[in-house]
Amino acid sequence: MSRHDMLGGVALVLWAFLGVLTRLAAGIPPLQLTAMAMTVGGAAGLAVVLARGQASRLRQGALAWAHGVGGLAGYHALYFAALALAPPVEANLLNYLWPLLIVLLSAPVLGLALDARRLSGVVLGLAGCALLLGGGAGFAPAAWPGFLCAAAAALVWALYSVTARRLAGVPTEAVAGFCLGAALLSGVLHALTETTVVPDARQAVAVLLMGLGPLGAAFFLWDAGMKRGDPRLLGTLAYATPVASTALLLAAGEGQAGWRVLAAAALVAGGGLLAAMGRGGKPAKAARL
């Protein structure tokens, strides 16, 4: 595993805390929460960029801005809509189809080979996610728009992640601007569709931690990992995120552990290990803006 693969792995660890932090911030409308947290993350990133004298790296072409702002804002808009319209646990797990899609899209988009070990790892990871889903059948018809939003969110994030490799000429520092752009877009949508809630102390701390971690630093680390690491490995290892997130929620007293969770964790961990043992393919050349 390369250094950039490890950076992408740290992003996955940070994303595992998103569920717990979201529970702490409960009561804040989704788009407002997205705008606030991304403002924190973008501002922190911008401060680092300016302190290093790298402001010029924020000047990127229209394609880079469309990719960054559209990917960050579009994914979260679809994700929060999914959790609002469908049962949140099932919608969240359906959203975690994006690791599978990353591994599969790496072949046609980037020209990376998918060997038998990686494909087997994908199958194990998908089986773990399916086991966590718990065989949820018989959902009300009103829930299906939410499930469609969850599936669309998975596709948007997978495409954002994989195509980031082809935009490797865009420096990671530019993500600070993309976060602020996504915050602005989310804020406008919030003003049009939601009622503003003034956060209390608990919610404010949750927003701060969320902005510094899952909706902040994680974006920069993931960007570096997807552009310079192995997207097939990171995509398969990402199956551990819903398991880790579930474990943290259980530790916080949000549920009870059972054989299903333990078995799913074993399948996900085994799939990640199997994928890590796969042979690497020749990466496609990054496109220049």
Score class of each variant (00 low, 15 high):
1 M>E: 12
4 H>S: 11
5 D>F: 09
6 M>C: 07
13 V>N: 07
17 F>D: 00
19 G>A: 15
22 T>M: 07
35 A>Y: 06
37 A>R: 06
38 M>Q: 13
39 T>V: 05
40 V>A: 04
41 G>V: 06
41 G>D: 04
47 A>T: 04
48 V>M: 10
49 V>W: 06
54 Q>C: 00
58 L>I: 08
59 R>H: 14
59 R>F: 12
60 Q>W: 11
62 A>W: 14
63 L>G: 14
63 L>H: 10
64 A>F: 06
65 W>Q: 15
69 V>I: 15
69 V>D: 13
73 A>L: 12
78 L>K: 10
80 F>D: 08
85 L>K: 05
85 L>N: 03
91 A>D: 07
92 N>D: 06
96 Y>A: 02
110 L>I: 00
114 L>I: 09
124 L>C: 13
127 A>G: 02
127 A>C: 10
128 G>M: 01
129 C>L: 15
139 F>Y: 13
149 C>R: 03
149 C>H: 06
151 A>Q: 01
153 A>P: 01
158 A>L: 11
158 A>D: 02
159 L>P: 03
161 S>Y: 01
162 V>F: 07
162 V>Q: 01
166 R>G: 03
169 G>R: 05
171 P>E: 07
176 A>P: 05
176 A>Y: 09
182 A>Y: 06
182 A>W: 11
183 A>G: 00
183 A>N: 00
184 L>N: 02
184 L>Y: 04
186 S>K: 12
186 S>Y: 10
187 G>V: 06
192 L>Y: 07
199 P>M: 10
199 P>C: 12
199 P>L: 14
199 P>T: 07
199 P>G: 11
204 A>D: 05
208 L>V: 12
211 G>Y: 09
212 L>V: 06
213 G>F: 02
214 P>C: 01
215 L>F: 13
218 A>Y: 08
221 L>M: 09
224 A>G: 08
228 R>Q: 15
232 R>C: 08
233 L>N: 01
235 G>P: 01
242 P>E: 01
244 A>K: 12
250 L>R: 12
252 A>S: 15
253 G>T: 02
255 G>K: 12
256 Q>A: 15
258 G>L: 11
260 R>Y: 09
266 A>M: 08
267 L>G: 03
267 L>M: 08
270 G>L: 13
275 A>D: 05
283 P>G: 14
288 R>D: 12
